[in-house]
Design a protein around this nucleic acid. Structure first.
Lengths: 157, 157
DNA sequence: GCTCTGGGTTCAGATTCCTGAAGTCAGTTC
DNA sequence: GAACTGACTTCAGGAATCTGAACCCAGAGC
């Protein structure tokens, strides 16, 4: 990846407090938060399942589930099975689902570069093949790391 | 995204301590670590630049840069400008570059769902268009969130 | 009306993490 | 050889975070 004009002169520009990555990390940038999002993508919806499957204390789960809900990534939705009282479940919102490329990207990276389990897979429902993430430009070209430039748009907010 | 057989019975399977996402989050899952990786992708290489551009204390930067180096995402490389003593710079390794889809994914998500700055862009050097991440299966189909299934492979590790 | 269960909340304590300030150290310039 | 610079390291203190244990509450079943 290359960094070219005009960002070479970074002294004139600071992203501190404004960078979208920083904002995103503020929401899903902690281990518990990201693992809860992983679980939500795996299909988990109920509080106790989040607690046991992520392996965190109930208080931690409650704190982060609330934060993720307030941030608009999860939604509390009441549901009721027959003969059982109504409950709330945590379901991914569109914004939460939109995080899937990051979740799958982390997963794929972890499989390639750590000694994590490799018996779980994300697959395409249609054809059954494994999925991965690709970096692509809006013209549809696959973009390699070296072909990415970081640039500052003229009309700055 | 759907979770179908045989993972519906999650009680029999636990990813705690083995999940690739968990492993990945252990390395780049803190705010400082991910922001240092962001900076490395932006092209930053020198210690003091990391400190000022990320906006963290030198001690924090040193700790996380060392951890990222030990984890194989960054590499310390000596370099020498004429008339100046040799120094080390932090450069992305192939494993670090391989994290680019995650960095760009977080960036794109942040632009769409937070009020972060939008004056910085990742673009394709070849054609100049903005880049984004796509979820795709190995057959090349674009995969929507609803078309992803999570499955457990037979032959478990 | 007692118990059970799901889905939490509250709390104190321990741990981890971050920060700012100061110190170190090697090579370079003057 | 004194001062300077880049690149850290060390340290003390404070803030944030996690944990386990205990508690709470509503509705269902008996």
């Amino acid at each position: 990846m290359q960094l070219r004009t005009p960002l070479d002169d970074r002294s004139r520009w600071s992203s501190i407090g404004r960078c979208p990555i920083e904002k995103a990390m503020g929401l899903v940038g902690s281990r518990p938060a990201m693992l809860l999002m992983r679980e939500a993508h795996y299909g988990t919806r109920r509080f106790d399942d989040f607690v046991t499957r992520v392996g965190i204390a109930p208080a931690t789960a409650a704190t982060h589930l609330r934060a993720l809900t307030e941030a608009g990534l999860l939604e509390r939705r009441p549901y009721q099975e027959e003969g059982v009282r109504a409950r709330d479940e945590y379901v991914l919102t569109p914004a939460g689902e939109d995080l899937m490329p990051v979740v799958i990207g982390l997963f794929a990276w972890g499989v390639r570069h750590t000694d994590g389990a490799d018996d779980l897979q994300f697959a395409h429902a249609g054809c059954g093949r494994v999925v991965d993430v690709r970096v692509e430009c809006t013209a549809g070209h696959e973009v390699a790391p070296d072909d990415v430039v970081v640039r500052l748009r003229r009309r700055a907010r």
